[in-house]
């Protein structure tokens, strides 16, 4: 499934054509294209299989954590990208010195486990949806002879599927799984970035951490310039070149809360020192 409008250009008809295709597939399952009376009870298995496949396809598209997934169509789930999207950057042993490659593989393994658990949920939801649908059909109707009959059946199917889905995804175990998938994917991305930074540093290029530190210093300077009183000395803010990268990173964290100001901005209220308290990071879980 391609979520409409998420590609580089907005082409609604393509997404709708895909929806139509799925609709016809469903009608085929309902027996419409065969033109014969359907054995409705026998439909449960193929319906469940179709729905499960759709759920799996939809959740497998990469969310933002997937660095390799930039520009890829978004799915509808909080699910993680395909495990294959992650891995150590292939940059040679020298460039990944100090980087915990085993940690990356550990996270990849965990991600695979979680995706397996998610697949079980999809399977359960799909089976439940199909059972509800068959149950609600009651006495076997005759073959679908009009588009209205087909649409009515389709509406019932959607209702049953959403009901089964809602029942499952509201449960605490599903919510925990979704969060863990997101956290593991994010941790993988963080690892990837760490490896990329190691490579960048080995070439003497500025890293994300250093850029962040500079950005924070700029914000702090702007904030202080906007305040009444003497301007800060240049030397107070110009510490980065001599500072270690670790200090730069710490500086970025310290200064993350400093305010920016715009030259054309109406006078903002003066920052209170206590604001730093709100920025204290929570301990890592």
């Amino acid at each position: 499934m391609q979520t409409p409008g998420t590609g580089t250009s907005f082409k609604p008809e393509e997404a709708y054509a895909a929806a139509a295709e799925r609709f016809f597939e469903l009608m085929k399952t309902f027996g419409m294209t065969g033109g014969v009376t359907t054995d409705w009870k026998a439909l449960a298995a193929p319906l469940a299989t179709q729905f499960e496949r759709w759920l799996q396809m939809s959740q497998s598209a990469a969310p933002w954590f997937g660095a390799a997934g930039a520009g890829a169509p978004a799915g509808f789930g909080l699910g993680a990208p395909a495990a294959g999207a992650f891995g150590p950057v292939p940059i040679g042993p020298a460039a990944v010195q100090g980087v915990e490659v085993p940690r990356t593989f550990e996270l990849l393994g965990r991600l695979g486990q979680l995706q397996g658990e998610l697949a079980k949920h999809w399977s359960e939801i799909a089976a439940s949806a199909a059972q509800r649908f068959i149950g609600r059909l009651g006495a076997s109707p005759t073959a679908l002879a009009t588009p209205q009959q087909a649409l009515k059946l389709y509406e019932l199917w959607v209702h049953c599927a959403e009901e089964a889905y809602a029942e499952a995804v509201h449960r605490p175990d599903f919510a925990r799984l979704q969060a863990e998938l997101a956290n593991t994917s994010a941790a993988l991305l963080a690892e990837q970035r760490q490896q990329a930074e190691a490579l960048v540093r080995s070439f003497g290029l500025p890293t994300r951490s250093e850029v962040d530190a500079l950005h924070s210093q700029l914000k702090e300077l702007r904030r202080r310039l906007a305040e009444p009183g003497p301007a800060p000395h240049a030397s107070e803010a110009d510490e980065t070149p001599g500072a270690s990268r670790r200090e730069a990173r710490q500086g970025a964290q310290r200064a993350a809360g400093k305010r920016s100001a715009s030259a054309q901005r109406p006078a903002p209220p003066r920052k209170r020192p206590a604001s730093r308290q709100t920025r204290a990071r929570r301990p890592r879980r």
């Binding site: 409409p4 998420t6 959607v158 889905y165 809602a166």
Partner: peptide
């Protein structure tokens, strides 16, 4: 990215929001 949030919102009622309305 905004696409991720879109995906999250769609996943609240996936069949209704990503299929049924088009059909």
């Amino acid at each position: 990215p905004g696409e991720w949030l879109n995906g999250l919102f769609l996943s609240l009622m996936p069949l209704r929001l990503a299929q049924q309305k088009y059909v």
